[in-house]
Simulated scan of single mutants.
Amino acid sequence: MKKNLLAVAILCALTSGTAFAQKAEGPWLVRARAVNLDSANKDSTGLGLSVNNKVIPEVDVSYFFTPNIAAELILTVPQRHTLRAGGAPIGSLKHLPPTLLLQYHFDAPGFKPYVGVGVNYTRFSSVNFDPVATAGLNPSIDKNSFGAALQVGVDIPLTKNLYLNFDVKKVYIKTDVYASGVKAGTFKVDPILVGVGLAWRF
């Protein structure tokens, strides 16, 4: 009987200590990253379409529903890209790609790895084609894209609430391409984004 009571007491102490630590840590996590965007540039139009790779700023906000499960909203500012056909510039566009992910954070000593899966919405804007480079084609694109997003990363504690973050995402972004109103094919950006930054838990 005494052994059972002792076991219950130890379990209660551990549970309350864990709950206190989780409460003290806070449910919110904000990250700021520098992210290298590397596009897959898959094109079925036969024009050899591509956009340039670049480093972009990224900010995300996460909320922890439990110690292991969180939702993350990833944001940036509209990014301008040069659009090329066969390596030659034919225009430019901007894209804004907010992404919402559901994450699972693993329990590990000294660092906090996580995986995520979710959905991306990309809005293409300021689409401009060079009238000389695209003479006679009258090109246009679909300005909205919905696709899946996959993620793996790790938060490494630096201080009580400050973390060093490494993050890799695969985001599926595509748009249909039209010539004089007729669909010519699909251009898939489908970038891999590799980021490093800092995170603050509160």
Rank of each mutant, 00 (worst) to 15 (best):
N4L: 15
N4K: 14
I10D: 06
I10V: 10
A13E: 07
F20S: 12
F20G: 01
A21E: 06
A24V: 02
A24R: 07
E25V: 01
P27H: 00
R31F: 09
A32K: 04
V35F: 05
S39A: 15
N41V: 11
K42H: 15
S44K: 08
T45M: 04
G46H: 04
G46L: 04
L49E: 00
N53R: 12
V55D: 00
V59A: 03
V59E: 03
S62C: 06
F64K: 09
F64H: 12
T66P: 07
P67K: 02
N68T: 03
A70F: 08
A71F: 06
L75Q: 05
V77N: 03
V77I: 15
P78R: 11
R80G: 13
H81S: 15
R84G: 05
R84K: 15
P89V: 12
I90V: 15
G91C: 07
K94H: 15
L96C: 02
P98A: 00
P98I: 00
Q103D: 14
A108W: 13
F111K: 10
K112W: 05
V115A: 13
G116Q: 10
G116P: 00
G116F: 14
G116C: 09
V119I: 13
N120W: 02
S125N: 06
S125Q: 05
F129N: 08
P131C: 15
V132C: 03
N138I: 01
D142R: 06
K143W: 01
F146L: 10
G147M: 03
A149Y: 01
G153M: 03
T159E: 08
T159I: 02
N161A: 11
L164R: 02
N165V: 11
N165P: 08
K169W: 00
K170C: 02
Y172G: 02
K174P: 00
T175F: 04
T175D: 04
V182T: 14
G185H: 08
F187P: 08
D190Y: 08
D190A: 14
D190Q: 10
P191W: 06
P191S: 05
I192S: 15
G195N: 09
R201Q: 10
F202K: 06
F202C: 06
